[in-house]
Design a protein around this nucleic acid. Structure first.
Lengths: 206, 206
DNA sequence: CAAAATACTGAATATTCATTCAACATAGTT
DNA sequence: AACTATGTTGAATGAATATTCAGTATTTTG
């Protein structure tokens, strides 16, 4: 009579998976992927080494799931499109702030995930397909619209988009490399950056 | 009674060090630091495993020297200062192009070095002290001058500098994560980017 | 409550290298 | 040629650690 899929069982299993992923996130962030041992993760999660392998295929598989979870939380925020409805200047600042507010608290996770992503093709492709491509697609649509409405000048949209995304990642990395200035002042960056991009740094002729 | 310092001996030694560093660069770029074995490096260099240890303390020490060599080649190009002498618009484009021309051919080296730098404090500090700090200092001086001369509007110089540097690194990383657009069009980026930063993307009121 | 199924444990296994070093090779010196 | 110094070799060592699995605990079922 037991249902084939016991929902309670599943919730328990999901909870344990979450527990392990949380622990792994902490450990990876602290030691990096390669230096973190499965034992470390198990200890942090309060389970035995072997338990990890009940829920995940391998250590890499754990990282892969951390990445997926990170995506899910970012995807929800990606409604760039709404921006065209309101004052574009306010929107642009808001958008930049939103991105950074999302990225910065997870900075240490990126320290762990990014290195492995750069080197592991499986993770790289996953990130490319599931994060970069959709993010760029949405952003480009927004810029197209803004140009059509005469809000932005006719810039090269794909390159603009990548420059924008690159700046976020790059600033994060400079911070992760030890720069104190960004760490201290990252909350000011959205305004400074938005103004810079919108109006340019060159003195106006007049 | 061989002289204590035979210059020929030294040249031979230097050549062998270079040979090993070149080999390691290739191997690290292909496999990443952790997946690359000392045997891989030795084979690529055409020497025995043990020979590596005649010239370097450890595998990490090899990476450290690759990084130092990379710095040396970048430092030579860092005379940002000259820019104030000539037309600032031309200079800015030239500068961006110069940076990218320097970075892009070494993209695969960064794929190898960056992950380790993010995770290894020793390497991180080295990069911070020897590359980031001096680069930022020179750049900031340039921006200060440009502002004083009325060429740039009074922007936040430290953040501007970090945004600029961040964009280079970030674009490189997006490419390393598999984006084809940048790879295909990176030579166009200096113009697009410089125009964007100098004049802004917002349509002019008039 | 007993039996069956499932989850968990952590010591043992197996593998993967970084590093060492005794033996060999080469070049330089008298 | 004999001797010394220095460079090179790669098999052997040892440490680290991802993964397995036989045994134990817990939960579910009839």
């Amino acid at each position: 009579m037991a249902e084939k899929q016991d929902p309670i069982q599943e919730m328990v299993a999901a909870a344990r998976r979450t527990q392990i992923l949380d622990a792994a996130t902490v450990v990876f962030a602290k030691k990096g992927f390669h230096r973190a041992t499965v034992k470390d993760i198990a200890q942090q999660a309060g389970v035995a080494d072997g338990t990890i392998y009940t829920y995940f295929e391998s250590k890499t598989d754990v990282l892969l799931h951390i990445l997926q979870r990170l995506n899910q939380s970012t995807e929800r925020e990606q409604d760039f499109a709404r921006g065209t409805e309101q004052d574009f200047r306010t929107f642009f600042v808001t958008y930049v702030r939103q991105r950074m507010t999302l990225l910065w608290p997870n900075a240490e996770v990126f320290r762990a995930v990014l290195p492995e992503m750069l080197v592991n093709p499986e993770l790289r492709d996953l990130y490319n397909e599931q994060v970069l491509v959709p993010t760029f697609a949405i952003g480009e649509k927004y810029f197209q619209q803004a140009i059509q409405r005469g809000i932005f000048r006719p810039i090269d949209v794909p390159l603009m988009m990548r420059t924008l995304a690159g700046t976020f990642i790059g600033l994060l990395i400079i911070q992760l490399l030890g720069d104190k200035e960004i760490e201290k002042r990252w909350e000011e960056i959205p305004e400074v950056f938005a103004t810079m991009v919108l109006d340019g740094v060159a003195a106006k002729p007049e």
